Amino acid sequence: MDGARLPPVGRTAVGVAALRALESGRPDRLFDDPYAGAFFHAGRALFEGRQRRDGSLGAVFAQQVAIRTRYYDEFVADAGQVVILAAGLDARAFRLPWADGARLYELDLPEVLEFKDFVLNEQGARARCARTVVPVDLRADWANALLEAGFDRTRPTVWLAEGLLVYLSRDEAERLLIDVTALSAPGSRVSFEHRPEGAADGLLRRARAVGSEVTDLWQGGLGPQAPEWLNDHGWTPETVAVADLAARYGREPEDRTRGGFVTATRRG
């Protein structure tokens, strides 16, 4: 299975896996993902004839992906119930040390999860927590599918929407987060990318200057108003800039804009 059946958005996960493999090979790596290289090898045919364009895009996003992965590794640490929205080729269920009794749900399109599990099975990977995959389209009725899979809405949950919202329209992003809110017990947390300068953000402008099938898929999500939206819907948000995280992790910041992440806690 070579990833040829992956939908366009799902194919971006192969590129992210390549960047995670690159970071994992560094002596000063911020994390170790032993499966990232296998994902990229299995899906690399998707990049034939597009190496120069997507390779340049990879150079733009390499540090962003490294810092984002490390930050979200820390975000889910010690969580009891985790939902990864648009899980892609995320391997946290297999590479992180989870607390006893931790339960993780991975939501994504059926083709993406099928490709992912094929590669993981080839690698002999074994989950280190109770892992449940839920094949869904997050633009449709995914909440009921999650509940039917055993999700406990009375239990505080960590929601991770890594690299997702930019591919959704504002209406789609709002519907998704309204469902997340409805399923979140007090004390639940959610996090995703946040760029207070919107389309003017330096990283996004650099990416669009390269041009690729990836940037053509961007729709903007909630845009710069994400913290305000979360606050208005029962969450207490906080933001952190990639530049500040780079300094914390011992990396020289590459992007001087204020882009980073928003993390919010569900109020009681």
Rank of each mutant, 00 (worst) to 15 (best):
D137L: 08
D137V: 10
A140S: 14
A143M: 02
A145W: 01
G150C: 04
D152G: 04
R153S: 13
T157P: 00
A161Q: 08
E162H: 13
V166K: 02
L168Y: 00
R170G: 01
R170F: 11
D171L: 13
R175P: 01
L176R: 03
L176C: 04
D179H: 15
T181F: 02
T181S: 13
A182E: 14
S184R: 03
A185R: 04
V190I: 15
V190L: 14
V190Q: 05
E193F: 02
E193Q: 15
R195C: 13
P196W: 06
P196I: 12
P196C: 09
E197V: 10
D201G: 05
G202M: 09
R205H: 10
R206T: 08
S212I: 02
S212F: 01
T215D: 00
L217H: 01
L217P: 06
W218R: 03
P227L: 03
L230A: 10
D232G: 09
G234A: 06
W235C: 08
P237T: 08
V240W: 10
V240A: 11
A243W: 07
D244W: 02
D244A: 12
L245P: 00
L245G: 09
R248I: 12
G250A: 07
R251T: 00
E254N: 10
T257L: 01
R258G: 15
G259H: 04
G260D: 08
F261R: 03
V262Y: 06
A264Y: 04
